[in-house]
Simulated scan of single mutants.
Amino acid sequence: MTVSPTDPATTDVTPATPPTGTWHIDPLHSSVGFVARHLGFVRVRGRFSDVEGTLHITDPAEDSSAEVRVATATVDTGVPARDRHLRSAEFFDSANHPVMEFHGHNVRREAGHWSMDGDLTIAGTTRPVTLVGEFLGEDIFPFTGGRRLAFTGRARVDRREFGVSGLPPLPGATIFVGAEVDIELDISMVEHDVRPFAEQILGRRLAV
């Protein structure tokens, strides 16, 4: 199955190349979000609060790879009852599949953006996904003095391809959540693993 990304803005600008190395997601300053449509047109946004992962940037950058893990039980849409439903077997089935994963490879430099193909696993089912995004630049991570990189990413998936049925609670009811879901990423990455620092700030261990 091929999952098409959302259409990127068209531009002839060559995207900047990020520096090589192994970079770690900063969970305190990153957002892994999604947008679903309720009853076909009203957009509902959510995010996951616990995420970890690494990006291995090589020279050439086209050989780079990524591994990301997200704790499904940390889904947050701002409505506790809805979040409990999303954690149930009708959606993420967090009790049996506490983590969803993305393994990225096959990086391409395209007009004004980067693309990365990968394998996304949700609720035990793996399907190919293409992320489209931008490298926003490099600066200093103020808490350690090390370097920090910033990226955006987006993709569109059909949740039914992952077995995420989202069945309505009543027989014969209209489908509540649209099949297509947009993934939206705003990612801060640093040179070292900052999970211990994040756990100290949060006062708890991360779930992934």
Results as ranks from 00 to 15, higher is better:
residue 184 E to N: 13
residue 188 S to C: 15
residue 79 V to L: 13
residue 144 T to R: 08
residue 8 P to F: 03
residue 130 T to D: 02
residue 47 R to P: 10
residue 20 T to S: 14
residue 178 G to A: 03
residue 19 P to H: 12
residue 208 V to M: 01
residue 201 I to P: 09
residue 133 G to W: 01
residue 54 T to V: 10
residue 13 V to D: 12
residue 82 R to C: 08
residue 85 H to Y: 11
residue 151 F to H: 04
residue 191 E to S: 12
residue 175 I to R: 15
residue 120 L to G: 02
residue 76 D to N: 14
residue 206 L to A: 07
residue 126 T to F: 14
residue 78 G to F: 10
residue 123 A to K: 05
residue 93 D to H: 02
residue 69 R to G: 12
residue 139 D to G: 15
residue 12 D to R: 14
residue 169 P to A: 11
residue 61 A to P: 04
residue 99 V to N: 04
residue 208 V to N: 01
residue 88 S to P: 06
residue 68 V to L: 07
residue 29 H to Y: 12
residue 68 V to E: 00
residue 30 S to K: 00
residue 137 G to F: 08
residue 138 E to G: 12
residue 121 T to K: 09
residue 68 V to M: 06
residue 80 P to E: 08
residue 52 E to P: 06
residue 115 S to F: 08
residue 135 F to K: 05
residue 66 A to Y: 02
residue 25 I to Y: 00
residue 110 E to S: 13
residue 133 G to H: 02
residue 44 V to Q: 03
residue 76 D to M: 13
residue 66 A to S: 10
residue 41 F to C: 09
residue 140 I to T: 15
residue 119 D to R: 13
residue 72 T to D: 10
residue 113 H to T: 05
residue 197 F to W: 09
residue 36 A to I: 04
residue 146 G to M: 11
residue 77 T to N: 06
residue 138 E to C: 11
residue 191 E to W: 09
residue 201 I to R: 15
residue 76 D to Q: 11
residue 173 A to G: 15
residue 132 V to C: 04
residue 189 M to F: 03
residue 54 T to E: 04
residue 85 H to T: 10
residue 100 M to P: 07
residue 182 D to E: 13
residue 172 G to K: 10
residue 73 A to G: 13
residue 1 M to W: 13
residue 172 G to P: 07
residue 192 H to W: 14
residue 120 L to Q: 02
residue 13 V to A: 11
residue 82 R to E: 07
residue 189 M to E: 02
residue 99 V to S: 03
residue 47 R to Q: 15
residue 123 A to R: 01
residue 77 T to R: 06
residue 192 H to K: 13
residue 31 S to M: 11
residue 69 R to P: 08
residue 204 R to S: 11
residue 135 F to S: 05
residue 115 S to I: 05
residue 195 R to H: 09
residue 157 V to I: 11
residue 111 A to W: 11
residue 80 P to T: 03
residue 199 E to S: 06
residue 186 D to P: 07
residue 55 L to F: 09
residue 25 I to A: 01
residue 97 H to N: 04
residue 5 P to Y: 01
residue 118 G to P: 09
residue 168 P to K: 06
residue 64 S to N: 06
residue 41 F to W: 15
residue 127 R to W: 15
residue 72 T to S: 07
residue 148 R to K: 11
residue 153 G to Y: 00
residue 35 V to P: 02
residue 71 A to N: 07
residue 69 R to K: 15
residue 144 T to G: 03
residue 192 H to S: 07
residue 134 E to W: 06
residue 8 P to S: 10
residue 45 R to I: 13
residue 36 A to M: 07
residue 74 T to C: 07
residue 139 D to S: 14
residue 89 A to D: 14
residue 72 T to M: 04
residue 152 T to V: 07
